[in-house]
Amino acid sequence: MAVIEVKDLTYRYGIGTPFEKTAVDHVQLTIPTGAYVGIIGHTGSGKSTLIQHLNGLLQPTEGTVMLDGKDIWADKAEMRQVRFRVGLVFQYPEYQIFEETVFRDIAFGPKNMGLSEDEIHARVKEIAGIVGISDDMLEHSPFLLSGGQKRRVAIAGVMAMRPEVLILDEPTAGLDPRGREEILCEIDLYRKKTGATILLVSHSMEDVARHAEHILVMNKGSVFCYDTVQRVFSRAGELQKIGLAVPQITRVCAALRQNGLAIDENIYTVEQAKEQLLKLLRQKGVNRGC
């Protein structure tokens, strides 16, 4: 089953002015229910414009966006429901925080949904658990938190609406490696608990390789390729041509292979590489007969 289906989507802005530009150009896309799709592409490749169509923040110039088989623009009165079902976390989401306490900020979305107080309370507590916000932190002012913590509060604010599809636009931008990994793991945890579909926009090939199952590569407003992680990264040469790269560790392994090491071709994470290298070392050890 496809949760989101994009048919022939085109978005132009500045129509009729000298600045007219096609940001998204005839995009076809099917996102299966429960998938984890990494979206990569250059700045200005149309990633952010594309994802803003998926919850109706932008209206397509041409084409349709279907959620569960229904055109989201068919009934404009239903648009808010669409936004609750397709949660969108923007870049640097901590800049949208406004409430007096962390609790109330996370509760903003659920409150807009018209849920009961008890339900809101339960949801905030649950999501706080997922993103690692402690109970006493919930009563603090969000403005006193650290950058990484603010980011978590903002992401939790969208998760608390319990969207079936969670879209995140570079949720790890500007964080240190540990903070990045923590947030990505929290997203994994949310997915595990709710079975949600995840779309992750990222500049980091490493992050995408580690967490996503499918990769959508955008280039100049069109879909360059959309396939499993393995098959996308096996086209390293083509990716390099449009100025994108495969993960560092994949390049390291390719170089090792060129130098005659019998290492596997499909390695995208450091863990895989470690396993492979240890295996090779053990074989070598046996051959030498130590």
């Binding site: 919850n55 923040l57 808010r80 936004r83 949660g87 923007f90 800049y95 949208q96 807009n112």
Partner: peptide, 13 residues
């Protein structure tokens, strides 16, 4: 503009 879209995504009207 950015903040407005972000809050709209959280169901603000």
């Amino acid at each position: 503009d950015k903040i407005m879209t972000a809050q709209k995504a959280r169901g603000a009207s």
